[in-house]
């Protein structure tokens, strides 16, 4: 399972870096520069990525051309929104370290820290 997740990430990484439509063949060739991977495996995993909605595809003659359905930055931004609890989902699936505070609350934190610092110096 871990292998599969890694390969998914490797494939997505290519599509994000290239930022253009590409064939499975191109992806396989590029991954093969670093390590051996079977064409059929990449075909399978690419198709999984398509069905999960990470890739879109269009036909060019007899081959499929794939491309990322959203940029890496858009993915990171959506994840961060989840992580900060800012998204619609209030199910609390994720637990963040500090919630977003307003300016007054941040000032109160600073004051609490300063007071301790002052006591330590005395």
């Amino acid at each position: 399972m871990r292998r599969l997740g890694e390969l998914e990430a490797e494939i997505m990484d290519r599509f994000w870096r290239w930022n253009r439509p590409a064939t499975v063949r191109e992806v396989v060739d590029d991954i093969n520069l670093h390590r051996d991977v079977a064409y059929t495996t990449v075909t399978t995993v690419t198709s999984i990525l398509f069905h999960k909605g990470h890739l879109t595809r269009s036909r060019d003659g007899r081959v499929w051309l794939y491309r990322a359905s959203a940029s890496r930055e858009a993915y990171a931004a959506a994840l961060m929104e989840d992580g900060l609890g800012a998204s619609e989902d209030r199910e609390g699936a994720l637990v963040q370290f500090v919630e977003n505070l307003d300016a007054d609350e941040i000032a109160a934190l600073r004051k609490a820290l300063r007071d301790v610092g002052r006591r330590a110096q005395q």
Binding site: F97, V98, E99, N100, L101, D102, A103, D104, E105, I106, A108, L109, R110, A112, L113, V116
Partner: peptide, 28 residues
């Protein structure tokens, strides 16, 4: 404590609506 402050202060402050409710100061 300083890590908590740095992370909170390093973000765009949330618009203030709804009184309190945050636990950060309590924890700090």
């Amino acid at each position: 404590a300083t890590a908590m402050y740095e992370i909170a202060a390093g973000r765009t402050p949330r618009g203030a609506f709804g009184a309190g409710g945050t636990t950060a100061l309590l924890r700090m």
